[in-house]
Design a protein around this nucleic acid. Structure first.
Lengths: 115, 115
DNA sequence: TACCATCCCTTGTGTCACAAGGGTAGGCAC
DNA sequence: GTGCCTACCCTTGTGACACAAGGGATGGTA
C-alpha cells in the first residue's frame, strides 16, 4: 500500500540529491541529513533507498565519488556534482515544479470545467 | 529510467481519480479525459495504468462500480465515490500538498542552512 | 462495407522504495 | 582493557505499480 510520502520521494529523490550536492561535495550520510532537514523531516530517507540512489546517479554520470575523511574523522565517500549533473538539475527541476503545480491545481479545482 | 512525470503520477493518481469522481459518477474513459484536461495534458494516463488503478481503488472500498450506458450510447462502467472514498480524499489531499510543498521549498533553497 | 471512436481489459517487464540484514571504525565511559 | 553508541558504508529479498503492447466489443458514419 504505497503512500503519498513514498511516491513523492520517488518523484524527487534524484533531484533532491543533486540539489544537496549543489552546496558542495558531501558524503551519503550528510546528504540524507540535509534532505531530512531541508524538508522539515517530512521526507525520511532510508539507507536502503539512499545508497542505491547514489550508485544509480553515479552510473548515469550525474555525480562522481571519492573516498575521504569526514569532519568526525571517519572514512566516508564524498560525492560531487558533474557538469552533466548540474545540467540535469537545471533541466529537470523546472519540470518537476511544473508537473507538481499542475497536479496541485487539479486537486484544488472547485469546478470540473475550465474557468 | 523513471521520469518525473511518471513518478509524480504515481504519487497522485489515486487522489486524482477520487477528485474526478467528486464531480459525480463517471466511467473510466471519462475519468482519464478529465485528468488530462485538468492537468493541461501534462499528465497522460495510459489505459494500462488507469484500469488497474480503478480496480485497486474499488478493492480498497474507496469507489464502487456499476454498468451503464454512456452519453455516446456505449456500454460503460460507471464509478462512484463511497463515503470512505470521500473521507480518504479529504484526509490524503492535504498530506499530498504538504509534502509536495516541502519538496518544492527544498528544491528552491538558496542557502543550505535554515533561514 | 469499412473505418474510426469509444469503451473495457490483461499480461509481461522494469524500476525502485523499503525492510532487514551485515560490516567497520572512532570516541567515550567505566 | 571492555562495552556501547554513533557515524558511516553496503546488499539482498519483496512488493507495488506505471507502462507497453497486446486483445476485444460495439455504435455511428461515410
Amino acid at each position: 500500500m504505497a503512500d503519498t510520502e513514498t511516491d513523492l520521494l520517488r518523484s524527487s529523490l534524484d533531484l533532491l540529491v543533486l540539489k544537496a550536492l549543489n552546496w558542495g561535495p558531501m558524503h551519503g550520510y550528510g546528504i540524507s541529513e540535509w534532505i531530512e532537514h531541508a524538508t522539515a523531516s517530512l521526507l525520511l530517507l532510508e539507507e536502503g533507498t539512499l545508497y542505491p540512489a547514489l550508485h544509480r546517479l553515479e552510473r548515469r554520470g550525474w555525480i562522481t565519488s571519492e573516498w575521504g575523511v569526514s569532519g568526525n574523522n571517519r572514512r566516508a565517500k564524498f560525492y560531487r556534482l558533474t557538469t552533466a549533473g548540474r545540467a540535469r538539475f537545471r533541466a529537470q527541476a523546472p519540470l518537476w515544479h511544473r508537473h507538481a503545480e499542475a497536479i496541485a491545481v487539479a486537486l484544488r479545482r472547485t469546478s470540473p470545467e475550465p474557468v
